[in-house]
């Protein structure tokens, strides 16, 4: 295996690990999509996951809130192990926000309703309180003035910022991002990255699949490189970009930084 960091080092579990993946494997039918994933994320840590298309990045972070099911190994999120127990899955999902490549806002609800739905129905917050919280986060992503519009009336960048606010309204402990800027027109990428940088500054635990290397350099505590279902390398951004250890990483970086 080309893994350059030892499994033992990865398995080191501080008491403050909020996500722990131990020996995780996943298959789609015959296809082995995740192979022996060992990953421990500390509270407040900001991690960027990168790697070629099809390497299993989305699958990995979708396993963390059980949008996908793993078949072997353990995933423990905020002290709860993900199994078939539906109650536990819902508990974990409440604490883990997810931002998708294609936003996935609810088109039949207004921006404000998108943000208050889960707090009202899942967290049982009173409507007024949920709306106040929602407005606070919409303010923070600078879209409060659009609160009563429908998602279809907003630009891609605005929709993605609403999607981030919608997740934050559940006061999650962890935020997962799956290529949040790759469906956006270039001029809208920055407005979304700015929101994510702002979020990182608040101390949120973040796991971002992204190819925005500028974001990785300025925000990430650790960069994880995946290829063919394996974690090939993980390191601090400085080391990762200036001194990649594996050949596959070097190849990937040369491809991604060349344009």
């Amino acid at each position: 295996m080309a893994t350059t960091t030892s499994a033992a080092a990865q398995r080191q579990t501080g008491t403050d690990a909020i996500i722990q993946c131990v020996g995780v494997h996943k298959w789609y039918g015959e296809f082995h999509v995740l192979k022996d994933i060992n990953l421990s994320v500390r509270k407040g840590e900001r991690i960027v996951v990168c790697g070629p298309s099809g390497s299993g990045k989305s699958t990995l972070i979708r396993c963390i809130n059980r949008l996908e099911e793993h078949q072997r190994g353990q995933i423990i999120v905020d002290g709860i192990e993900l199994t078939n127990n539906l109650k536990n899955i819902e508990l974990v999902r409440r604490e883990v926000g997810m931002v998708f490549q294609h936003f996935n806002l609810f088109p039949h609800l207004t921006v404000l309703e998108n943000c208050t739905l889960a707090p009202i129905w899942v967290r049982r917050q009173p409507k007024a309180e949920a709306e106040a919280t929602a407005m606070k986060y919409l303010e923070r992503v600078q879209i409060a003035s659009q609160a009563n519009k429908f998602p279809g009336q907003l630009s891609g960048g605005q929709q993605q910022r609403v999607a981030i606010a919608r997740s934050l309204c559940m006061s999650p402990k962890i935020m997962l991002f799956d290529e949040p800027t790759s469906a956006l027109d270039p001029e809208m990428v920055k407005e979304v990255l700015d929101v994510m940088i702002g979020l990182a500054e608040t101390g949120m635990t973040m796991l971002c699949v992204t190819h925005e290397m500028g974001f990785a350099k300025s925000v990430a505590d650790r960069v994880i490189f995946m290829d063919r279902g394996e974690i090939v390398e993980q390191n601090t951004p400085d080391e990762f970009f200036t001194n990649p250890r594996s050949e596959r990483t070097r190849l990937f970086l040369s491809q991604i930084l060349s344009h």
Partner: peptide
């Protein structure tokens, strides 16, 4: 209904009926 709608709802912790 696109799959993303189910996933977004799941991701927010909404149960099946909700």
């Amino acid at each position: 209904i696109p799959k993303g709608q189910y996933e977004a709802a799941d991701g927010l912790g909404l149960g099946y009926w909700l």
